[in-house]
């Protein structure tokens, strides 16, 4: 019995040490990439390529996600609000929810799934085929060449995608609200300006920027830490998606608590 308890405590200790080591490596990686962000050469071409890949190439999936999210959200609120005869509040409610929460969080989840995975897979396969070593042997900093453009690309793209999400989501809600649920068009829109504040939009933009940065760091970190062959790349890709999504949701909670107080 005593031996079993000792073994369990030992296993717990090993797990805690592993977690701490992982956190330390992740923090080290984050600072290293931030350091190389501000050092020349500045690779604008690579940055624009990443903004195109993360931003432009995600627009369609954001369009689909946001339009249906807005439409469903309008429906659900209508059902609740109809009971208390407050269906005219659907417009502001949808807009507030989209701008503060749904747009940054759902855009973050979409980008974590689509681009976080791609970052880990691209960098991971370069790692296992010695392409990263080839960069280093040439004297090129692989963090600066591979990680920095991807992290900055995600950081710049996600607020823009979030803004698109907000607009399209509102459009979806407006269509359902006015054309299906037959709420008066003026009523649907008029109350938005009474309830919306600049701080709500700012909150969404700040959240999206932070999520973009974290998704970029997690995706590239997982790529650089791939070991073994194809199996390792698959594992790294999976970890990038899982940790990217979890991080978006967890950090959203803390950001909401903090930003609601200051904005």
């Amino acid at each position: 019995m005593k031996l079993m308890i000792e073994k369990r405590i030992e296993a717990l200790g090993v797990y805690v040490l592993d977690v701490l080591e992982g956190l330390g490596e992740f923090t080290n990686f984050t600072f290293k990439t931030m350091f190389w962000t501000f050092r020349p050469p500045y690779r604008f071409k690579l940055l624009f390529e990443q903004i195109y890949f993360i931003g432009n190439k995600s627009v369609f999936i954001i369009f689909l996600t946001s339009s249906f999210t807005g439409a469903v959200f309008a429906y659900q609120i209508y059902v609740g609000m109809k009971v208390i005869n407050a269906d005219s509040f659907i417009g502001p409610l949808v807009t507030i929810a989209l701008s503060k929460e749904l747009a940054p969080v759902l855009s973050g989840l979409v980008v974590a799934g689509r681009c976080g995975a791609a970052m880990a897979a691209q960098i991971g396969s370069m790692k296992v085929t010695e392409q990263i070593d080839a960069l280093e042997v040439m004297g090129i900093n692989s963090y600066q060449y591979l990680a920095v453009p991807r992290i900055l690309g995600a950081t710049f793209s996600l607020p823009l995608l979030s803004a698109i999400f907000l607009m399209i989501g509102y459009g979806g809600a407006w269509l359902i609200g006015t054309k299906v649920l037959l709420i008066d068009e003026v009523t649907f829109s008029s109350k938005i300006s009474d309830f919306m504040e600049l701080g709500m939009v700012t909150e969404g933009i700040i959240k999206a920027t932070v999520f973009g940065f974290l998704i970029g760091v997690i995706g590239t970190y997982q790529g650089f830490n791939v070991t073994g062959g194809a199996e390792g790349v698959g594992k790294g890709t999976n970890m990038a998606v899982v940790w990217g999504m979890i991080t978006v949701l967890v950090v959203d909670f803390f950001l909401t608590s903090f930003l609601t107080k200051i904005l």
Binding site: S125, M126, T129, E130, Q131, D133, A134, V137
Partner: peptide, 11 residues
């Protein structure tokens, strides 16, 4: 200059 085991060309 270096030639890697499997060439390590940028794919």
């Amino acid at each position: 200059g270096m030639v890697f085991q499997y060439a390590a060309l940028f794919d």
